[in-house]
Design a binder for these strands. Structure first.
Lengths: 202, 202
DNA sequence: CTAGTCATGTAATCCGTTACATGATTAT
DNA sequence: ATAATCATGTAACGGATTACATGACTAG
C-alpha cells in the first residue's frame, strides 16, 4: 500500500485521469515514484471503492471521454496518516550499477555505451526539471518562492530530482571515462581477442 | 529475474553464505540493490538448481555451519548476457519524497523530523562508504587505483553511492530548513491549533 | 538467564510486470 | 489508409513482503 499515497500526492496538483497519471508516473516525475498504467488503473479503481477518491466524467470534443479523480476528505486523512508514520527506507534498484560492480569481468564496450546512454537520459531530465522549476515558481526568485510561495511541495521534490540527475550524469560520464581509459591500456577497446586474453566475457 | 544478477555481482567479491548476503543486501551496499533475507535464500536455492552457483558447506567452531556460494562458469555467462542486454531504467521509490511533495497540506513537525533522520542515515552511510573506499584502494591514491587497480567495479559503485548519499544529505537538510522557516512564519512549528487554521492535517 | 547474533528456511499474501484486448480520434 | 495519441481496462504470472518457525551459540 504505497502506490496509493503517491497517487494521492499527485492528485494534490489537480484533477487527473488515469491516462494523465500514467504520463506523470511514467516519466517518474521529479523521480518521486514510478508505476505502470495497469497498476494505476487498478489502484484508482480500488481507491475509489475505498472512498479515497471520487471520479468525475469529463466529456471532451474530438477525444474519448475521460474520468478525472479528486482526493476526498478520507483521502486527505489517509495521506496525513501516511505522513505521520515512519517512512520506509529509500528503495533503489538499478541494473547499471550492478553491471558496473561486475565490470572487471565484463566486456567494456557495451557497458560504456550504456553509461553514456544513461548520461544522455539524465541530461534530458535535467533540462525538463529546470523548465519545471521555472514554471512552478513563476516570476519569483527561488529563495523568495520557497519562503512565500503557496505550494512548494512539487518544487522541493523537483529540486531533489534535479540534484539526483545531475549527480547521475556526472557519475556515468566519469565512470565511462575510467572504463575507456582502462580498456585502452589493456589493448584497445574494440579489440575482442585482446579482451579474451584478459578474461573478459563477450 | 534481476535479483539473481545482483547476487552474481556480489559473489564476485568472494564466497558468501546466505546470511552474509542478507547483511550486504540489507545495508544496500553501495546502494546498488536491496533484498530481504527470504528473497535471498529462495533465490540462492533456485540459482544453485539452475547451475549458476555451487554451494560449499563450511564447518565453524562456536557457530552453526554455513553454506557459502561460488559463481560457476554458467553463472559468469549469465552475468555476461545480462551486461550485454539493455539496462532497465533506474527504479526509485521513496516515501519521503512523496511526503515532501504533499508537504503543503501536512503538519510540518513530523516531516521535518523524518528529513533530519534521513539526513543522519545518509551521513552514516557517507562515513561507511568513505572507509570502504580507503579499504578497497589500499595504499594507492584514487586516480592511480582507478587507472591500474585490478578490481575497480566495487570502487566505482561505492563512489556512486557516496555521491548519492552526499546529495541526499544536503537535500534533506535544506528541505527541512525550508519547511522549518515556513512553519515559523505561519505561527510557530509546534502550535497545533495555528496549523489547523492553516489547513494542515494532524 | 536473557538478549542478541548467526544461520536457514516455509507459507500466505500482496504487489508489480507482461501480455493481451478494445476502440475512438487526429495528424500525415 | 496508416500511424500515433487518447483512453481504459483484464488476465496470468512472477517477484517481493510479511509473518511464522527453528535452533545453536555468545556476551552481558
Amino acid at each position: 500500500m504505497a502506490l496509493r499515497h503517491a497517487v494521492l500526492a499527485a492528485l494534490l496538483d489537480g484533477e487527473f485521469s488515469g491516462y494523465q497519471l500514467t504520463k506523470i508516473f511514467d516519466v517518474g516525475v521529479s523521480d518521486f515514484w514510478y508505476a505502470t498504467p495497469q497498476q494505476l488503473y487498478a489502484e484508482l479503481a480500488k481507491m475509489e471503492t475505498d472512498g479515497l477518491l471520487t471520479g468525475r466524467r469529463v466529456v471532451q470534443r474530438g477525444r474519448p471521454d475521460k474520468r478525472v479523480f479528486t482526493v476526498t476528505g478520507a483521502g486527505l486523512a489517509e495521506l496525513a496518516a501516511f505522513a505521520a508514520a515512519p517512512a520506509k527506507p529509500l528503495l533503489i534498484r538499478d541494473d547499471l550499477i550492478v553491471k558496473v560492480h561486475a565490470c572487471d569481468l565484463l566486456a567494456p564496450g557495451p557497458l560504456i555505451a550504456q553509461l553514456q546512454e544513461r548520461a544522455a537520459e539524465a541530461a534530458a531530465k535535467l533540462e525538463l526539471f529546470g523548465k519545471m522549476l521555472l514554471r512552478l515558481r513563476g516570476e519569483l526568485e527561488e529563495e523568495e518562492f520557497l519562503r512565500r510561495g503557496e505550494r512548494v511541495g512539487p518544487y522541493l521534490t523537483c529540486l531533489g530530482g534535479l540534484r539526483l540527475e545531475r549527480q547521475m550524469h556526472e557519475w556515468c560520464l566519469q565512470t565511462a571515462r575510467t572504463l575507456s581509459e582502462r580498456a585502452v591500456r589493456d589493448g584497445t577497446a574494440q579489440d575482442e581477442s585482446a579482451q579474451q586474453e584478459k578474461g573478459a566475457l563477450s
